[in-house]
Design a protein around this nucleic acid. Structure first.
Lengths: 255, 255
DNA sequence: CGCAATATTGACCACTCTCAATGAGGGTGG
DNA sequence: CCACCCTCATTGAGAGTGGTCAATATTGCG
């Protein structure tokens, strides 16, 4: 994190390439020169801290943000101050894609824990993608990926019981952490119970109770924000089982 | 492919431009020649009927689909046959965007009522967007719009009560119909109660009961699939009020 | 050190799910 | 054309889950 004094130049560039790579160069398809150009427009900021804001609902849209380390939450606020959490974003994930359409941010984003964030001015990214077809392709894929993840979330919220939802949330977190090479079974929740509850459409107390229940059943250890998953399989089967129970296989009609 | 028949030349082209325009040329930015080229790669199919399938989960991704008239539902099926409705798609809306990433459809799409659908081979669309920057821009916007709509849906499912969810559903339908120049207060639901329930994460019986309750309160007339909204404002205020009630304005923390 | 915010736990009650029965259409075949 | 069947929709009664209110830790911060 603070390794930028001495060795900084290459380290940071590589670090940032990593972060950019994770998001933009997913499978392959960009030549080293392309990556070089891409890297040139990425702005690195100094570390941000809990409560810092990346952008607010209504702000003009200028840049996408990539989480290098740490975590971010996005949320929407109603006209009278209600707050609904829309998502949590872990290292390697991209924020702000929903603002491209209107040129205005539709939600706010704040930092949950000390985080390193890369900023990518979208105008530059777009014009770069004009010249690099494979970058254009990556961008399409990236936008599409976000849509797929939202659909997954819809699936999660379609589930009715609190256990299903919290299990789904934990499994999702676990999978995304593993994907970035972090521990999939031992991690800290950077968000409050309140924020989890809002995200899952539950009451804070219910979240707390289900954590306790999972603990009693031996699925996990929980102490405040520190979580250790003991039986990931059990949690996964809760999620999988859920889908079958409701909607017992009505056939989509046949001609 | 091209509208080359005598009678239909203008009619079909205009019809299809309308459908394409609604989705791809949203604000402006494409020259007539661009639209011409775009129009050239769009395939029109003969009308499809209830139960027909556009694509299935796992199918290779080849094309996007635009609803010209009628309606489509998308849904995901669990390994054991459970079915979760992910979305309903009305005229002017685009389907299949979530498949770009993996090149494979992540959900299935079937026709809810007799519908006219346009097919746009994505490979051709993408290479066309390489040559037409403004088309590229429109595509980014389009993908982004889809993300925004999914977020709106998350907001809807974040709401806890059945009334809030059904009200949100109806308001959303109404808004989208008005946007296409159709009646915002008098329409037919092409989907079954079962499908609505799955979409909203409720039981079929609850959907039915809330419809009755809304009717008793004078918010709407309902007879089977025929809906007439009598007090759209009331429904909207149910949705708006919901957000405030939960999460009473915890400030996002400030340094 | 003490206040404030966060988390956990309990009791109660409202809401929604489940189960079950009835009614209304739409289609098929006699 | 009508009887029949099957699916879909509606309505009722009972049970369970989660929301609400309230009290009590526990932590973090000024």
């Amino acid at each position: 994190m603070r390794a930028r004094k001495v060795i900084s130049f290459d380290t940071i560039r590589v670090a940032c390439k990593n972060c950019t790579l994770a998001a933009l160069c997913l499978p392959r398809g960009l030549t080293p020169e392309d990556v070089e150009q891409l890297d040139g427009i990425v702005k690195r900021s100094k570390p941000l801290h809990r409560g810092d804001s990346l952008f607010c609902q209504g702000d003009p849209f200028r840049s996408l943000f990539v989480v290098k380390t740490g975590s971010i939450k996005t949320y929407a606020t109603g006209p009278e101050g209600g707050e609904q959490v829309l998502g949590f974003h872990l290292p390697g994930e991209l924020i702000g894609l929903d603002a491209i359409e209107k040129g205005v941010h539709a939600c706010s984003a704040t930092v949950l824990e000390t985080s390193a964030i890369c900023e990518i001015p979208f105008a530059q990214l777009e014009s770069l993608s004009n010249r690099i077809p494979s970058l254009q392709h990556q961008l399409y894929r990236l936008l599409s990926k976000e849509i797929g993840q939202d659909a997954e979330m819809l699936l999660l919220l379609g589930k009715k019981s609190a256990e299903e939802r919290l299990a789904g949330f934990l499994v999702s977190l676990s999978r995304r952490l593993r994907q970035r090479g972090l521990s999939a079974t031992d991690f800290y929740l950077s968000m409050s119970r309140h924020e989890i509850a809002s995200y899952l459409g539950l009451a804070v107390e219910t979240v707390s109770r289900v954590f306790s229940r999972f603990h009693e059943e031996g699925f996990l250890e929980v102490e405040r924000k520190h979580i250790q998953l003991r039986d990931l399989t059990a949690l996964e089967s809760i999620v999988a089982k859920a889908m079958m129970d409701h909607h017992p296989g009505s056939k989509p009609a046949q001609p």
